[in-house]
Design a protein around this nucleic acid. Structure first.
Length: 118
DNA sequence: GACATGACCGATG
DNA sequence: CCATCGGCCATGT
């Protein structure tokens, strides 16, 4: 059998975590890393997205920074593209920011990570 | 192997 | 808003 390296497994888990973000919702790099089982490794998520083949059709546009800002340079081509993709899903992007509505309290960690904001 | 660079994060000033 | 700092760590030079 082919043995996947730890890095390859991690990449697959991160891709899966991104693919699992439902339309109309956004998620930060840090949360994606957490969901993928790699707490504190947000930068790795950025890397994985940057190198992900387009054929996978990952919803990369649903991943934003922890403060709600898009990860790209404001006004850049990628920035505009992401803004439009989000708008098409009904996500308001104002001044390069999305409305992050993380609920402050949750009963369980799982709920905090996965339950969509009301 | 040292050093710099990132689609990052959170805290602090 | 900006800048700095410590964490994180795969990649490229």
């Amino acid at each position: 059998m082919s043995r996947a390296t730890a890095a390859e497994t991690m990449i697959a888990r991160i891709r899966a975590a991104v693919a699992a973000i439902p339309p109309g919702e956004t998620c930060s790099y840090g949360i994606v890393a957490l969901r993928a089982g790699a707490p504190g490794r947000a930068r790795l998520v950025g890397r994985v997205l940057r190198e992900a083949p387009a054929e996978l059709q990952l919803p990369w546009h649903r991943v934003v920074r922890a403060d709600g800002r898009l990860a790209f340079e404001t006004g850049s081509e990628a920035w505009h593209r992401q803004t439009r993709l989000l708008a098409d899903e009904g996500v308001q992007v104002r001044h390069g920011r999305v409305e992050l509505r993380f609920r402050a309290q949750a009963d369980t960690l799982d709920e905090l990570l996965w339950r969509p904001p009301a």
